[in-house]
């Protein structure tokens, strides 16, 4: 699959972009040793220059360093939230698809119920009862975004469970858990990856929107969303404060979307 991805042009470039982003989030502080927190009163709102490639903010902090730090936050959110939603979605979907009957009916109804809540409203309501911390945000995004994966896994398992290889495994006395984990789920890995890639983009969008609304990651910790709060305040004098963090979000989510498109092309060669 990796091979196919490399020969897929847009897929390759988005994958490359994401790898670079990941590495610079990880090693950024060593490659670009400027503090994202240090305040310099004499360097307030400097436009991009050689010394500060992306300019400085209202407190004279370096924007590039803050964007690199924000990449950590965004990647962390996307991994943890999607990880959680995969665990929930895959297990509920597998149970519903494999056992069918009443269990399936109940799980499907629960999925329908959760789909009725506009995600942002649900997340806002939960956050209001908890503290708006990074951990809580990741958990809440994960808890409210598992429904798509659950439906997908359920459909996949439903279509496979009557096939011969499953019946023969059952004849050999394999337990249900073994059949699900070893025989059925591996067939669903590809579509799960597609939806995970989309889900990561979605998680980044939600986290940044929450942070922008002041209900997400709290200053002074920089996140791409809360950096844009300052961008809004200085719209008339400092374009770089609005442009760069937003561009970071757009490019990252775009890369994830293109990656999921590429994966879909690879899995389903008929699709144009």
């Amino acid at each position: 699959m990796l091979k196919a991805l490399i020969s897929h042009r847009t897929g390759f470039f988005s994958f490359l972009f994401l790898i670079i982003l990941f590495l610079s989030a990880l090693f950024g502080p060593y490659l670009y040793p400027v503090s994202p927190f240090e305040i310099h009163v004499q360097k307030i709102l400097l436009p991009p220059s050689l010394e500060h490639p992306l300019g400085t903010d209202l407190l004279g902090r370096d924007v590039l360093a803050r964007i690199l730090y924000g990449a950590r936050i965004s990647l962390q959110v996307s991994f943890v939230a999607v990880g959680l939603s995969l665990v929930l979605g895959v297990s509920l979907g597998a149970i519903a698809g494999y056992y069918g009957g009443l269990v399936d009916q109940i799980i499907c109804r629960i999925i329908d119920m959760f789909l009725c809540f506009p995600t942002i409203f649900l997340i806002l309501a939960v956050i209001a009862y908890l503290e708006p911390s990074l951990t809580n945000i990741m958990i809440v995004i994960g808890l409210t975004s598992w429904m798509g994966v659950a439906r997908l896994v359920r459909a996949e398992i439903l279509s496979l469970k009557e096939r011969e290889f499953v019946l023969s495994a059952r004849l050999y006395g394999a337990s249900s858990a073994r059949i699900i984990l070893r025989h059925l789920l591996p067939n669903a890995v590809a579509p799960i990856l597609v939806s995970a890639s989309l889900g990561m983009g979605h998680a980044i969008l939600i986290e940044s929107a929450l942070s922008f609304l002041g209900i997400g990651v709290q200053p002074p910790t920089p996140s791409w969303g809360n950096m844009l709060i300052e961008g809004k305040e200085t719209l008339e004098v400092a374009w770089w404060l609005s442009l760069f963090p937003g561009l970071a979000i757009l490019l990252t989510v775009l890369a994830l979307t293109l990656l999921s498109e590429a994966l879909q092309d690879i899995l389903n060669p008929k699709r144009k």
Partner: peptide, 12 residues
Amino acid sequence: LGYSMPSFWFAL
């Protein structure tokens, strides 16, 4: 692009 655009940034 429309898929990936953060709407609040688009608003800004």
